[in-house]
Design a protein around this nucleic acid. Structure first.
Length: 441
RNA sequence: GGCGCGUUCGUCUAGUGGUUAGGACACAGCCCUCUCAAGGCUGGUACACGGGUUCGACUCCCGUACGCGCUGCCA
């Protein structure tokens, strides 16, 4: 790169941070970090009366959560500010004057339009390659409006002016802007300036092939924050959508991605968002968490779902959560997975009850209760040994006593290691629950 | 309608004229095992279609179909 690399993410605060926008921001950020350049955040709030405060907060929150820090923009400032378009109107006036003086602007019912030179525009796109746009036909390529009668500005104009003013070297944006690009280049040419290098990245689609819209549940970054996803996992997953390391690696450290990121490795076709793969990848990251990190995130998730974690001893909570580590992919699975640690009021899984709460298991469960009640330490190792001897004594397989016991004390067929879970629950609790379950036969 | 872009397993992708078309998610089976995960092994499924070019096309060219985008006084 000859001069300094300066890229920008320019969202419009009209909704929440969209997953597609997040990926656009991510690619810009990666490009900037790879080249040691600057990542600029600019808010395109030319469009009036929306709940911009809330939406802007969501954008900041989403980017920060993903770890996409900006070098210039709201909060951090920079020499090319302000970074909210609503505060840059004098600048736009100045550029408008330039275009007017050069005869490129005409009025149409109070709105201002840019008169197209009506020529071919050749775009050399870093991702899409060379594209020849023929803008000579006014019927198919009408002169675009750049300012409304009420004085507010149109995206095509201010976007271009800001990129020029902020010395943006590379415009990496969604492919939905590809067809707009020649028009942007016309304005830049009329100003006597040089266009930035463009790179249009493919769109992210839904499962059904339609463009991911704000209405789709998983289309907002906020959704993943709430569901207890790990930012590193989402970030990694988003990288894989449209970009490839080309060597079959899936899980990549962000620094490694920064190191190898290249616009050349961005694909040309749109990608479908696959929640399953994200879920898997999140599990990969979740399993690598330190006990400390896991505990913190787990407690938050439990509280969020209404589990009264604070009613329990910290040591008990930690021990309980420890038995869940490595077992879940996302933290929102936790309440269902280990809720039994925090309430005695649970029902029994119907299929499990039908299968395990059967007459011949009653004496077995009683045997387990009796075997466990004679313990001193009540630790996992001791419990395991006792269950095995009990099974041997009864002449049954381990499973014949493990399954009913698990169901009796947790209400579920699946869960953490039974021995460890019994240890955490404690002798009294276990005996109570087994007695209660015995009444179900 | 016009213009633009795209099209490899269900999904994300590798592949750049000669490969048994590779990997990952998901799925199925087996192993491991106290359940579930994790891990290991195995399996099935893909080059949209039709013409060229070539000794030879997933790879290059043209067309068709389908999808998406733009075509706003939205961004």
């Amino acid at each position: 790169m000859p001069s300094e690399v300066r890229v920008r993410f320019a969202p419009s605060p009209t909704g929440y941070l969209h997953i597609g926008g997040a990926r656009t921001a991510l690619f810009n950020w990666l490009f900037a970090r790879h080249h040691g350049g600057k990542f600029v955040l600019r808010i395109e709030d030319t469009d009036m009366k929306r709940n911009t405060e809330e939406a802007m907060a969501a954008i900041y929150e989403g980017l920060e959560w993903l770890g996409l820090n900006w070098d210039e923009g709201p909060h951090v400032g920079g020499e090319f500010g302000p970074y909210l378009q609503s505060e840059r109107t004098e600048l736009y006036e100045r550029y408008l004057k330039k275009l007017q003086d050069a005869g490129h602007i005409f009025e149409d019912q109070g709105a201002l339009r840019f008169r197209s030179p009506r020529e071919h525009v050749i775009l050399e796109d870093a991702v899409c390659g060379r594209i020849d746009f023929d803008l000579s036909n006014p019927a198919t390529h009408p002169d675009m409006t750049i300012r409304r009668p009420d004085g507010s500005w149109i995206f095509h104009f201010v976007n271009v002016i800001d990129d020029l003013e902020m010395k943006i070297s590379h415009v990496i944006r969604g492919e939905d802007h590809l067809s707009n690009t020649p028009k942007h280049m016309e304005i830049i040419r009329a100003l006597g300036a040089t266009p930035p290098q463009y790179a249009h990245i493919p769109l992210i689609l839904n499962r059904d092939g339609t463009k991911m819209s704000k209405r789709d549940a998983g289309a907002r970054v906020e959704y993943y924050i709430r569901r207890g996803y790990l930012p590193a996992a989402l970030r990694n997953y988003l990288c894989l959508l449209g970009w490839s390391p080309k060597d079959n690696r899936e899980k990549l450290d962000i620094n490694e991605i920064i190191r190898i990121f290249d616009l050349k490795n961005i694909g040309r076709s749109s990608a479908t968002f696959d929640p399953d793969k994200l879920h898997w990848l999140n599990g990969e990251y979740a399993r690598e968490l330190s006990d400390e990190e896991f505990n913190g995130l787990a407690v938050s998730a439990l509280k969020l779902s209404g589990v009264k974690v604070d009613d329990y001893q910290e040591q008990y909570v930690r021990a309980a959560l420890q038995t869940c580590k490595g077992k879940i992919n996302t933290f929102d699975e936790l309440p269902a997975y280990c809720g039994f640690y925090f309430t005695d009021d649970f029902g029994y899984n119907p299929e499990g009850a039908a299968k395990h709460f059967i007459p011949e298991n009653k004496p077995r469960l009683e045997a387990v209760r009796d075997a466990l009640s004679s313990f001193e330490k009540f630790d996992a190792a001791e419990i395991e040994a006792a269950l095995k001897t009990t099974a041997a004594k009864l002449g049954v397989k381990l499973g014949a006593i493990v399954h009913p016991t698990r169901l009796a004390v947790t209400g579920s067929n699946v869960g953490p290691s039974l021995y460890h879970l019994l240890q955490v629950l404690g002798k009294e609790k276990v005996r109570e629950r087994i007695d209660r379950a015995l009444g179900m036969f």
